[in-house]
């Protein structure tokens, strides 16, 4: 099957994701962000999806001035691609939409219904993907973290 044996350093460089983890200062005022319903919005996004869709989900406009959205890379996982989009308001993450996620098997649906919203809440709370590695992790959560990190990098948030 996939015999993606890396044979040259050029190939390696081609698939490296360059991620710069943000400094961890300045994340103290996050409790209010959780309570604004960012997590709930993300739950809606994951729970209402009917299948893996590359199209943009609803809720692109966050409303107030200074708001913008940033889309992360689509990251392939064993169960399918995972892609997230950040909504930023005043430089802070207000919402995370899951644009793509695996929706094939029952196992995947459990992830959709439960895992992604949980990760969303944690990510909004922490304002970054602040876990370096996960022991016992699913492939999908790894993909989520990587897509989120690429969006954070693009957004230039702190």
């Amino acid at each position: 099957m996939r015999r993606a044996v890396v044979t040259s350093t050029a190939t390696v460089a081609g698939v490296i994701l360059l991620l710069s983890l943000k400094p961890h200062a300045g994340t103290a005022t996050t409790a209010q962000v959780i309570s604004t319903g960012g997590g709930a919005g993300a739950t809606d996004s994951a729970g209402s999806g009917s299948g893996p869709s590359a199209g943009p989900a609803s809720g692109a406009g966050a409303g107030s001035g200074g708001s913008r959205t940033v889309t992360g890379d689509a990251v392939d996982t064993r169960y399918g691609p995972v892609q997230v989009r950040l909504s930023l308001s005043g430089g802070r993450i207000s919402r995370i939409d899951v644009l793509q996620y695996p929706a094939g098997s029952g196992h995947d649906r459990r992830i959709n219904a439960d895992a992604l919203p949980t990760l969303n809440q944690e990510a909004i709370a922490a304002q970054s993907a602040q876990i370096d590695a996960v022991s016992g992790a699913t492939y999908t959560s790894d993909g989520y973290t990587r897509s989120l990190q690429s969006a954070l990098d693009r957004a230039g948030t702190r």
Partner: peptide, 22 residues
């Protein structure tokens, strides 16, 4: 899902077996 760290501090999440992905 098994992690070896070198240097640090690194933050290692422990997956919740009852909530996949959390």
């Amino acid at each position: 899902g098994d992690v070896q760290t070198c240097g640090g501090p690194w933050r290692i999440g422990i997956a919740d077996p009852l909530r996949p992905g959390a």
